[in-house]
Design a protein around this nucleic acid. Structure first.
Lengths: 330, 330
DNA sequence: CCTATTCACGCAAGAATTTGCAAGCACTTG
DNA sequence: CAAGTGCTTGCAAATTCTTGCGTGAATAGG
């Protein structure tokens, strides 16, 4: 007779109502009682009936590292739109300075009983960052999709642009324009997409490992890194993001040289407005539209208990030639 | 059971009242007694009941219309950061095409029991949009702050940039450069900030009401509106957002003219990267940092039951002169 | 030695929070 | 399609905490 919820209630010695409130994170339950109920829930191995997720919440968390780089808002729009079409509502969570960490957001999302989570540019992309919260997600079997390269051992499905091919494209373009002394500005050393780009760089002909700079993903970082490369005499710079490229352009100009006449610069992402910059930025486009849709499709499949292999779906980037690259001067 | 406060009182041999006073740092307790109570509190492991109003999560909703215009992500970062400093977590909600409406988000946020909501650029700014969901918020007495001009009859506190002054600054700058035939590109007719800018425009000397165009807030909208103005022979264009201004620049060039040599263009917002555009955009900066902080301060005050007048706090914008404006040719 | 003043503290009213009851809702089953 | 199960939620009672006020003790001054 006493089914699930009632059983738990009896064990703790409270009413079903209270257990219900705890389960739904509702206010009006004392900390002590909440704790007790949570424990009993755990001990008795309570599993909430399945259709609750499907009907009530239909919430999906979208965790982004920042919003300064326009690629992230753009991605948020794509994913949010695609989710909306499938009847899901997205909750956007961004790490803020000195504020909420990725792990905190994971706790929050679990507490709010989201149906799934999409991560983009998170800690999973950095080898040396903490990954404990991803394990928590796996324990709870929360549907999750990662966007862009991750460290190996997390078994989530992934949707990525092919960083290796992107770097090849950028380098190939510069070489075709006659550049021989090519530098690269990458993100942190433990950043997986940057590592993949580095691989492609080192595999290219005449690559000089001394012309690789690691930095933070910011305009200032790009500026600093590019300054070193310019001093080392490069005529072409491949950057791991458009923001870095804008910083690089600034550095080149600060050195009294011109873009693209004396130094060519290539970005990565093709964020919005890169055709309005001075000069319009040559860049390698991430197909964020397709990637966003794919990520949502996979996530929805996971939510609907389909079996989705924890593979990495690689998307082909696309070279967008604008005016920040030109034939190398002889 | 844990007769919480009473138990401690008994252990120390004082009344509950005294323990309560110690807990709240109230005067009227001798140092010796205070010490004793504190010790007992520690020994018995007393835990304060959850004082935090209603919700444990300390969540705040941040509702934005879109993320394409970089001013919104920028604002989200400011508000998110300021909230994080105060111990709140922000949930970012953006209206997506064909997706979730503002009213849906309000329902969702109410359901998730957020502590408060910050709206920026929402329906409240448009006279003809539905406003029913704001009434719902008022009924529930949910702490709420609006950013930038709203229709009159919603009694929420507001934090705005002074649109009138902003337009005056822009027009004054162009007139000082010798421009006489000045056009204006605004948002929709029912958009309150645009109306305020229009007022300032019409109040200026030699203003021609025929040189005002209303359009959507998009690059394409700016392009279309500016094309008409260029055909009407303006030498200066004031835009209601940076995105509109970028569209306007494109339109001017499409007409075979140069910015700023033949037509000057001024934006509004001073979003990120407007110093990297071609030409670097002269614009009127919204002090989003100060505004975001003020909005958060007000919201937190509301959440803590302080009385905050439902006034509009007007922030002074700032003219940022770059290279999209120049002296008018004679 | 008596009285005024101050201070700590408890009483009890009252404010706030927690909790259970029972009605209500969503979904399943006969 | 009605009856049943399991969960949620409005409401009011119960519990727990806060605070104004008054009492009594200690202290100081007369």
């Amino acid at each position: 007779m006493t089914r699930r919820l009632a059983e738990v209630a009896k064990k703790v010695g409270v009413s079903e109502a209270t257990v219900s409130r705890v389960l739904n994170g509702k206010p009006g339950v004392s900390e002590a009682t909440r704790e007790a109920v949570l424990t009993a829930l755990d001990v008795l191995g309570y599993e909430r009936p399945t259709q609750l997720r499907g009907d009530r919440a239909r919430l999906v968390g979208l965790v982004l590292p920042e919003l300064q780089n326009p690629i992230f808002p753009a991605f948020a729009e794509v994913v949010g739109g695609a989710l909306a079409q499938q009847g899901f509502t997205s909750l956007l969570c961004t790490r803020t300075l000195g504020g909420v960490s990725e792990a905190d957001y994971v706790d929050l999302l679990l507490q709010q009983q989201v149906s799934g989570v999409v991560f983009a540019g998170g800690f999973y992309a950095q080898a040396d960052a903490p990954h404990g919260h991803y394990e928590l997600i796996q324990e709870r079997k929360l549907p999750t999709v990662l966007v862009n390269a991750a460290v190996d051992h997390l078994g989530f499905p992934q949707v990525s642009s092919d960083d290796y091919v992107a770097a090849e494209m950028a380098i190939g373009h510069l070489r075709a324009l006659g550049h021989r002394r090519i530098g690269m500005v990458l993100g942190p050393r433990d950043h997986i997409p940057s590592r993949r780009k580095l691989e492609a760089f080192l595999a290219a002909e005449e690559a000089d490992p001394g012309l690789v700079e690691h930095t933070m993903f910011s305009l200032e970082g790009g500026h600093a890194a590019a300054t070193k490369l310019v001093n080392a005499g490069v005529t072409g710079i491949v950057c791991a993001s458009d923001i870095l490229a804008l910083g690089a352009i600034r550095a080149v100009r600060r050195a009294g040289l011109s873009v693209p006449d004396e130094v060519s610069v290539i970005g990565y992402d093709d964020s919005a407005m890169m055709n309005c910059t001075d000069p319009p930025l040559t860049t390698v486009r991430q197909p964020i539209d397709a990637m966003g849709r794919a990520a949502v499709d996979m996530l929805v499949a996971l939510i609907e208990h389909a079996v989705v292999p924890a593979d990495e779906l690689l998307f082909e980037p696309e070279l967008v030639v604008r005016a920040s690259t030109a034939r190398a001067r002889i």
